[in-house]
Amino acid sequence: MATVSRVLNGTAVVKDETKAKVQAAIEKLAYRPNAVARGLASKRTKTIGVILPDVSDLFHAEVLRGIEDIATMYQYHIILTNSDAREDREIDLIGTMWEKQVDGMIFISEKITKEIVRTFEQAQLPVVLCATDDPEGRIPSVAIDNESAAYDATRFFLEKGTSQIVFFGGPTTHPVTMERRRGYERALQEAGKPLQNDLILHAPDMKYEGAHGVAAEFLQNGHRAEAVVAASDEIALGFLNAVRDRGGNSPQDVLLLGFDNTRLSTIVRPELTTVAQPTYDLGAVSMRLLTKLLLDEPIEDYTVRLPHSIIERTSTHRG
């Protein structure tokens, strides 16, 4: 057994003749090392648990690519689960990851509650939040500054001389939405513009369908917008198609700015101006921060803020 272990793990020099015999036996028996047994012996399974709201979402899919590439580089395997953004399911999945003896977790969520933090503490596993903030800074995290990003997006319109600017976010229980709303409000206040409650819209989620319904009702009630700062690309497209349903278009009737720079922003016509998050990098940097925790490497900052930018396309260009 010791000789086989040395051959498999390369932990000691083994004679070429002996090594050949072991390799022949491995091939004949189609033997594969038992990762669970290895984990029990080493207390490391080389697996990482990733919990996110929806893997089919374009934003999360791109983040996941970044996570997976860095995990592969450091020879970790990924166990991926969808939480559907439900706290009860998130708590259950954290317990499941602990039972599977993952070495650490990357967690993407809409909201970090006290119960979530308590569950992490009970699991006693290294955790990094990705594209997610812990308001009290208790958990290492990688994200952009959402308030500053929405501030810049609103300033983008103000500098064009636009006055009727709608903020269109997800639900008010969604922390990222509220951070972006604060950025919008701060930009208006600094510009000496009044806050108009009828120009602040909230969809039931960050998705197209709910946003389209809210936008249709807004327009049906006779409200008007010169420009829209949307909290996601899908929300922006919901507003766009509500305008089209009434015979209008963008940018002629309304200037539209989305958030996240997903593939949707270049597929749609007009192409969508958007706040670009470094989506792949969010995943990659989160995974690299987790490897530092696992390998006891020095860490300069447990709260990492990546840069954002505004990509201007035809939805805000009237010529």
Score class of each variant (00 low, 15 high):
Q196V: 05
K207M: 11
H202L: 12
T172P: 03
H202D: 14
D198G: 07
P175K: 04
E179Q: 09
H174F: 07
E179W: 00
T173E: 10
H174T: 04
Q196P: 03
L201H: 07
L188Q: 03
N197I: 06
L195I: 15
D205K: 13
K193S: 10
P204C: 14
T172I: 12
R182S: 10
K193I: 05
L195P: 11
K193G: 05
M206S: 13
D198V: 11
R182F: 00
N197V: 06
H202W: 04
P175H: 08
D205Y: 07
R181I: 00
D198E: 15
I200V: 15
A203E: 13
R181T: 00
D205F: 04
R182K: 14
R186I: 08
K207W: 01
L188Y: 01
G192T: 11
E185A: 08
R182D: 02
T172R: 11
P194Y: 04
Y184L: 10
M178P: 09
P204N: 12
Y184F: 15
Y184C: 09
L195Y: 04
A191F: 03
G192K: 10
V176E: 05
Q189D: 05
K193P: 02
K193W: 04
A187M: 05
R182A: 07
N197W: 01
P175D: 06
M206Y: 09
E190V: 02
L195E: 07
D198T: 14
P204Y: 08
H174A: 15
I200G: 06
A191W: 07
E179C: 01
R186G: 10
A203L: 11
H174V: 03
G183S: 15
G192R: 05
G183V: 11
P194A: 07
R186C: 11
E190C: 04
D198I: 02
T177P: 08
H202M: 09
I200K: 09
N197P: 09
T172H: 08
V176S: 06
R181S: 00
M178A: 07
E190W: 02
Q189K: 14
R181D: 00
V176K: 03
A203M: 14
G192N: 12
N197C: 06
G183T: 14
Y184N: 10
A191S: 15
V176C: 01
L195M: 14
M178L: 14
T177M: 06
K193A: 11
T172A: 12
G183L: 10
R181Y: 04
L195F: 04
L199S: 01
Q189I: 04
L188D: 01
G183Y: 05
E190P: 05
R181M: 06
K193M: 12
R181Q: 13
Q196Y: 02
P194W: 03
R180H: 01
G183W: 04
L201T: 10
Y208L: 11
I200M: 13
M178C: 05
T173I: 05
Q189P: 00
Q196A: 09
T177R: 06
L188R: 01
Y208K: 03
Y208F: 14
L195D: 12
R186A: 15
P204K: 12
L201D: 11
A203H: 11
